[in-house]
Nucleic acid binder design. Structure first.
Lengths: 346, 346
DNA sequence: ACTGCTCATGGAATCGATTCCATGGAATCG
DNA sequence: CGATTCCATGGAATCGATTCCATGAGCAGT
């Protein structure tokens, strides 16, 4: 099958109008569902559109009408299953509303985040859903100053007042710490997320508070600062295990870091759930398939994506919706050890 | 921080020109790097842009110049780690070339694929990278007839002549079958991908041919047809284990189906690598962290993404590049059993 | 001093669809 | 039957940036 190498002059609404024997204005009205059209011209325009296989030029349309039906979704890492699921959920929810999603992958890098935000501004997207990092970057402020409808998802930025949908990490983390304390653990290593993200900060705060509350060691050496990516989980586990007084349990602030930690523990020949307990934030499908299955702090990603789209539509509609906080909860599986390490030899 | 609720009249190139004391034409030339500008006006326009925080309207620009600097990336499932990695690789490669990526998630559904392709056409993307499914859909033909530069990635469509970058699945699958045969397996269950995709068909063909070559059973009951998603992997394993003569090894045509199969095997209490060998197509980071680590057929996703972008740029440039086929290879880990099942009790 | 050239510049047309406004025909009412 | 309303319609302006074309300043060569 040969195909024309050169792009033919694309068919415009004028061609459609000419074929249908009406004016471009009427053709436009038919196409946009304007009721001020006769059944006859509706039918003739529809026939012409089908015959010419006409696809309206979204640029020209957006230029005039200022709606693009495109939203921007800025995530920090598509390879993180949590964000992949979130992208999927948001994208499906948006599609159901007739919006297509321009996905930007900031790759946990602020310059790349700004690059995509600038692109979103230039593309005149109808709105932006963002999982931001850092303090309000210049591009983020440009977005807001321009009045482009924006909602935050998963993360927020201090002092920037936009609706958000986030997870109440505190409940889940508190449950996890309590669970570990009940199992007899006293030194729990925490692999934290970057403190440039609100989730990184919030989860660390929850962990510290809960550790104090349930009488665990508050030794600052037990906290390792990762970057939400798996390599830092490996490094964190390695570091924590090398302490003079190593922890007996690990809690990772997201799933890729948990995977990294897992790799380190396996490499060192430690048996998860016996020699070392491990709990991850975020429940990933296959975490329950590991041996032993991983204890996790779970939250509803699908709801988060759907809610973000709903909030964004409300903002676009001129409303000022309240932020939504979704719950998290501990799901106990075998990796956190049904028998505490102190049971046996105290 | 209060922010203006209403979108102010956006700043245009005329505002910039007025502030800089030049004409819109000159301002445009400065912005697009046209050399026919004096250092003086360059400097004054740059200052005005900075002062007004001007972001050019991409719609207006694209309307006139017919370049959008946007490419469309159509994938079948972002939640499949293979495609998430591919999206990441392609998106980073495109960004390095100054292109932003509009991601469409077909969700293994042909109507949704067409929906996104139509959107890409309307958005006048500069090119499309697609992992297509089904036979040439109408939207796919519309894309090609319009002469929109297109390359296929991972999958192809029969009879449609566009450059592609695919994996030579055959080598890896042949190695896997040979490996299983050497371990003494005779009945290997194959969880196939959908036959509406080229990868689904090719891999099944490779499996059948290799099974014949290495003397494995060619019982058609040993092939289960899945859809590349994890639930079908569970169902497939369930079905195959329930056969009158169940297989002693399973090979899954992609990673989510392998995960599904794994879940079923765990649930039934079968020990992977001892009671049942398991090999997956696609190497996912954490597959090596399972106990036992999973034997996989690996290919270079990062190279695939980079190559797809390179091919697309060549097509956009008017060239007609050759398709690229990347290698695959077996990586033996413990899940395929170092001791064959027939060893011990024949 | 006059021609011939380069080169930065501004005016105006242009891309393709939408939408305001005016028009004319049909329908409705007193 | 004439006046008024209704409504489908076409002409033309418009969105914001790019680009063709014409202009005029500056400069070198003979």
């Amino acid at each position: 099958m040969r195909c024309a190498a050169v792009t033919g002059p694309s068919i415009t609404i004028k061609d459609v109008a000419a074929l249908a024997g009406v004016s471009p204005a009427t053709a436009s009205r038919v196409l946009s569902g304007n009721p001020a059209t006769s059944p006859q011209s509706r039918q003739r325009v529809a026939a012409a559109v089908a015959q010419l296989d006409f696809h309206p030029n979204a640029q020209a349309r957006a230029l005039r009408s200022t709606r693009t039906n495109v939203i921007g979704l800025l995530l920090s890492d598509v390879r993180n299953p949590f964000f992949a699921d979130l992208a999927h959920a948001a994208e499906q929810a948006a599609l159901a509303e007739g919006l297509v999603t321009l996905l930007g992958n900031a790759n946990e890098s602020i310059p790349q985040q700004d690059r995509y935000l600038d692109t979103f501004i230039s593309q005149r997207v109808d709105g932006v859903i963002a999982a931001p990092q850092g303090e309000g970057s210049s591009s983020l402020h440009a977005l807001l100053e321009r009045g482009i409808p924006t909602v935050f998802v998963d993360r927020t930025v201090d002092g920037v007042d936009v609706p958000s949908v986030t997870t109440d990490s505190d409940t889940g983390i508190r449950q996890a710490v309590e669970h570990l304390a009940r199992q007899g653990h006293e030194r729990v290593g925490y692999i934290a997320g970057p403190q440039t993200t609100s989730t990184g900060r919030d989860r660390l705060k929850s962990f510290s508070r809960s550790a104090r509350e349930f009488g665990l060691s508050t030794d600052p050496a037990l906290t390792y600062f990762g970057d939400f990516q798996s390599a830092s989980g490996s490094a964190g586990a390695h570091h924590l295990l090398g302490l003079a007084q190593p922890p007996t349990a690990l809690l990772a602030a997201d799933s890729p870091m948990a995977v990294g930690a897992l790799a380190t523990l396996n490499r060192k020949g430690l048996r998860i759930g016996r020699d070392m307990a491990l709990i991850a934030f975020d429940d990933i499908e296959w975490f329950s398939l590991l041996d032993p299955p991983l204890t996790v702090i779970s939250h509803d990603v699908e709801a988060m994506g759907r809610t973000a789209v709903r909030l964004l539509l409300e903002v676009i509609d001129g409303q000022k919706p309240d932020s939504v906080v979704l719950p998290s909860e501990l799901i106990v599986r075998a990796s956190s050890g049904t028998t505490g390490p102190s049971v046996g030899q105290p």
